[in-house]
Computed example of a mutant assay.
Amino acid sequence: MLINISGRTDIVNYYSDWMFKRFEEGYALSRNSLFPNSVRRYELTPEKVDCIIFGSKNFFPVLGRIHEITEKFPTYFHYTVTAYGKDVEPGVPDIDASMETFRALARIVGPQRMAWRYDPILLTEKYTVKRHLETFRYIAKGLEGQFDRCIFSFVEMYKKHEVNFPELIPLTEADKREIAAGIGKIAREQGFILQTCGPEADYAPYGILSSGCITLDILGRANGLRFRNLKHQGFRQGCHCMQSRDIGALNSCLNGCKYCYANKNAQLPRENYALHDPDSPLLIGHLKPTDRLEPGAQKSFLMKEDQRRA
């Protein structure tokens, strides 16, 4: 079983004390996003977890303690560094600070466990195709040799962007092809793997792979593990990832990114953060008398001889 920390929020950046507490106590609770009274308990032990996938826009808060987890568990890290400034990602460090932290994390966990995410790619009058290509090259050069692969995607046009992000310019297929060709050329010149994430078009002519960003092959190669040949069902249509269990919560990320899909609006994360208790097994709030608590499914994906069972 794979644990995701987290596709719903930036636990690493804002809730790291809670995260380390959960690993100290050996379990976490996760509330179902669609059925709020349904809560699952996941054991956070080497016997129950095959690999932990971290995703964040700022790993600085955990640099001093991440070894507490990496020394016990196989891990893989998705670090998002984009072209955007505070006007789009108000809670995210600037590019140079992000690259410095990226390199520091790579020294701790190893570049083979690091993925650089350059997503989502979007256009405004400020963030043009030209600017993306220039910034992508700058970051790629600054992180040279520090990551296993680069993963990108194009922004999804949600209805709420009309209110939250009115300056967003819809990407045309020509825009996407121009960007893909440009970043594909940079990846070939610098010799790193570049792949899409999600239901993107086929950009193979530009040397870009089409793959899930959380696959058993990627995790196995990074950690020297052998997984069974299992179908990757994905999280949505067109997704090629292996399913994982997320211990985060929607509407709780304080990064404030204008393109965010996980926050309904800017106010809800602040309200939910006020309900956060680092000592609670739930990221937001506590168990309620009306909650239905059940053990989460934690079947191993490893080959039998590789299973680390007590």
Rank of each mutant, 00 (worst) to 15 (best):
Q237E: 15
C257N: 03
R226K: 13
D279C: 10
K264M: 14
R221Y: 07
D246V: 02
G238I: 00
I247T: 07
D246C: 07
K231Q: 15
A262G: 07
P278L: 10
Q267E: 15
C241D: 13
N272F: 03
D277Y: 00
G224H: 03
N265H: 02
D246R: 03
N223G: 11
L275S: 05
Q243K: 14
H240Y: 13
C260L: 08
F235Q: 13
R270A: 13
G256W: 01
R226D: 13
K264Q: 15
Y273S: 14
Y273W: 09
I247P: 13
N251F: 02
L230Y: 01
K231S: 14
L254E: 00
F227Y: 01
Q233C: 12
C253W: 02
K264E: 15
G248S: 08
S280D: 07
L219M: 03
C253T: 05
R236S: 15
P281G: 11
R245P: 06
Y259T: 08
Q267V: 15
Y261N: 10
P278D: 09
G220P: 00
Q267A: 15
R228F: 04
R270I: 08
Y273M: 12
Y259P: 01
L230H: 04
R228H: 05
G248I: 04
D246P: 07
L275K: 12
A266C: 12
G224T: 01
M242V: 11
A266K: 14
R270V: 10
S244K: 05
L219T: 01
P278T: 01
N263D: 10
N223H: 04
G220I: 00
D277G: 06
N223Y: 04
G220T: 00
C253Q: 08
K264R: 14
E271S: 09
I247G: 11
C239T: 00
L250R: 10
